[in-house]
Design a protein around this nucleic acid. Structure first.
Lengths: 237, 237
DNA sequence: ACCTGAACACCGTTCAAGT
DNA sequence: ACCTGAACACCGTTCAAGT
């Protein structure tokens, strides 16, 4: 939050290798960018250091370990949700509007960070009942408050929270996986038709391949979200 | 499939360090066991070699790389589904019975291999439309055949395939994550109440903590599966 | 106060060499 | 035919040392 850049200090105008001093947030953001570009597997302390014009060892001033670095990156990416103007922490137009906005905000996050999202989905959370992708106590509290204030019982609110997170993980993880990069090596552009899956034994797959390859993520997501909201609405009865 | 043990060869009776000769399947199974015991992070070629009483380098005769090893482990675990007597590759009592059995078989797999399941969910598949956890062409073909034979249109069958896989990933990934181990370090039994999440700022979380900590996975799973089947049934008209 | 060099214990992987 | 030793290039992490 502290503006530190505009002071009258006599610094040169970044002629190429002038690094703006290390800090934790800068490291986490660089990490997120690196993962999006090269995949998690490629992220090493040494390479991330190089990216920041610094020796790997310097990172340890701000990040206790590589594992903690990954957790920090996940947290930092998920926190982008707070600056999404379309998503409200406090419901404004009812619980359905709240859930729709939250779901779409998380989908935007996933699509923006397809390589980081699998980490969001699979890294251990701070409590077992903190279910990704709502990885912060504050969002869970916000969710439960929205629902109970709307008239859901405590039990129903918790059940809705579980159904909502399962819905998001299932849909978004498979959507980003299909985005081609998947989680994974990222290597091997391999334009050879070498492993073009032999479908001779699978006539139906062969017939439906075009249909299967269509990208219907957005429609599926909205449809499944609709079904979920309807189901929850029915419980309000 | 070949019985090789009972021959009259003069081998001693495994006095402790007698290894039954290396082969790919044995390596994959040992890998799955190792991951379940220590987590993926801990799995190195050298340690897996040691587990098999062999130098790491020997593994490369059967497995091209560590990445391929992980893929092989995933495939080998998923293939256990074929020997689940409750799951039918060919539907016998209608599509709903088929889907129920398939879903429950995959859930048993996930619960049996909580540490491997996240890999099943996130490893890149052989084609973008092969959606985990149904990671094999044969199962996708089986699924689509079951649905089209039951009267679903091609489009509806593909849509059902997508909805079914999203449902499974979302529910099962979150269920195994809650199983405590999560994917993750596995280390640190850390019985200190050090990071017992400070809930003072989150009154609702505090109030609902018991409710949130209850394990309702089985019920949720069955309920969500029911909703899904109902929805599909509605499309049959 | 912040960064680095050198060092340690470990990796994945290759390959020539052993039996 | 199957396994290994030695070697290479890379890791994560620690710590005493530099500025």
């Amino acid at each position: 939050m502290v503006e530190s850049g505009t002071s009258a200090s006599p610094d040169m105008g970044h002629p190429g290798g002038d690094r703006p001093r290390l800090d934790r947030q800068r490291i986490l953001e660089a990490g997120a960018v690196f993962i999006e570009e090269h995949g998690v597997r490629q992220l090493s302390m040494r390479r991330l250091g190089a990216e920041l014009d610094v020796e790997a060892m310097s990172l340890y001033r701000y990040v206790p370990s590589r594992e903690d670095l990954l957790d920090g990156i996940v947290e930092s990416v998920v926190d982008e949700l707070y600056s999404d103007p379309e998503v409200y922490v406090e419901p404004r137009y009812g619980w359905q509007d709240y859930l729709l906005r939250l779901a779409h905000g998380l989908r935007r996050l996933a699509v923006k960070h397809p390589q980081v999202f699998p980490l969001i989905a699979t890294r251990p959370a701070e409590a077992p009942w903190v279910r990704p992708p709502l990885r912060s106590l504050r969002w869970v509290e916000s969710f439960l408050r929205a629902m109970t204030q709307a008239g859901f019982s405590n039990e129903q609110a918790v059940e809705a929270y579980r159904a909502f997170s399962s819905f998001l993980i299932g849909n978004l993880l498979l959507e980003v996986a299909a985005l081609g990069a998947d989680i994974g090596p990222v290597e091997d552009p391999d334009p050879s038709p070498s492993r073009q899956a032999d479908l001779t034994d699978y006539p139906l797959l062969q017939e439906l391949q075009d249909l299967l390859s269509e990208d219907r993520s957005k429609q599926e997501f909205d449809a499944a979200l609709d079904v979920l909201l309807d189901r929850l609405d029915g419980q309000l009865g």
